[in-house]
Computed example of a mutant assay.
Amino acid sequence: MSTRFPAVTVVGSINLDLIATAERLPTAGETIGGAVLSEQPGGKGANQAAAAARLGGSTRMVGAVGSDANGQRMLDALAVAGVDTADVAVLPEPTGTALIVVDRDGENQIVVCPGANSNLSLDGVEFDRDETVLCQLEVGLPVVLEAARLHTGYFVLNAAPAMDLPAELLERCDLVIVNESEYALIPALAEAKLVAVTYGKDGSAMFDQARKVAEAPSIAVSVANTVGAGDAFCAALVLALRQGLDYAHALAVANEVGGDAVGDSSSQPDLAQLGHYVERTAVTAAAR
């Protein structure tokens, strides 16, 4: 197994997360009082880039923020995490914002106002064949398709939020990552060559054209916030696979990273280096 992994470029969303933590989630038309409001850096793309950098990957972000105070806050947060932000555009539109309600069990409801994310352009962005490109769908399908066409190396799609995916994109993906609900909502994934599916407390599994080829159990954790856990899982799985781990061990590592993330209230939590999680899961992986 290599001790280094190829550079990771994340093409995706950058948002300010406005989080209301309440006892429970409201039903339609209901008002709930007594919540606590917090603000923090977020966006699926930025969360994944921050996680990849903290895990030890050489990471750059391709995205867009507004020319406002929140945009600068998002850039500063990525830089602190160790992410190269040279390819993050600063646009006249407001920085993207996610309105999030989190209950006492860590479950959430999210509404995203994309702002500058809607105008992300890949003009002038170059991709090296040796790097890994990781995309999500919060910046829109056309941008993701363009990235898939421009990049000739290892290409990963976190297919969230769920939507119909063109055959061209699925055929291009070396790996697709989804949660259980997204897997059910995108039937075309049954034809994908490699799909990782997360099942929350039931762990995760890897599928090759709908055939399960590996799985790994979750770890028991106290849930503080599930918002960034899936993003941390994505970053860890990509790095673990690119470092040469087999499917089952890579899933176990990503589950451990996701478990640490779900126990942290931040959407961009501090994480140990990937090697720490590899060692922590090595005995269990060897026993399977």
Rank of each mutant, 00 (worst) to 15 (best):
L169E: 08
F207S: 04
D231C: 07
V195G: 08
A148N: 10
V143C: 01
I219G: 11
L189T: 09
S121E: 12
V178W: 00
A205T: 11
L237A: 08
V125N: 10
A235M: 08
Q243P: 03
H249V: 05
F233A: 13
F207W: 02
L157I: 12
G228Q: 04
A196E: 11
I177M: 14
L170Y: 01
Q109I: 15
C135V: 10
K212G: 00
L141D: 09
N119I: 13
L175Q: 02
R129A: 15
E146T: 13
A220F: 04
V227L: 12
A147P: 03
E131M: 04
V112M: 06
K201N: 06
K212Y: 00
S222C: 10
A162Y: 04
D246G: 15
L245N: 08
D231L: 06
G244N: 07
A224V: 10
L141Q: 14
V178C: 02
A236D: 06
Y247I: 06
L141P: 07
R149A: 15
Y247L: 14
I186N: 07
A210Y: 00
D208Q: 12
V139Q: 00
G200E: 05
V143K: 03
V112P: 02
F207K: 11
A216R: 13
V213I: 15
L241H: 05
L239Q: 12
P187K: 12
L241W: 01
H151T: 05
T198Q: 04
A214H: 10
E138V: 12
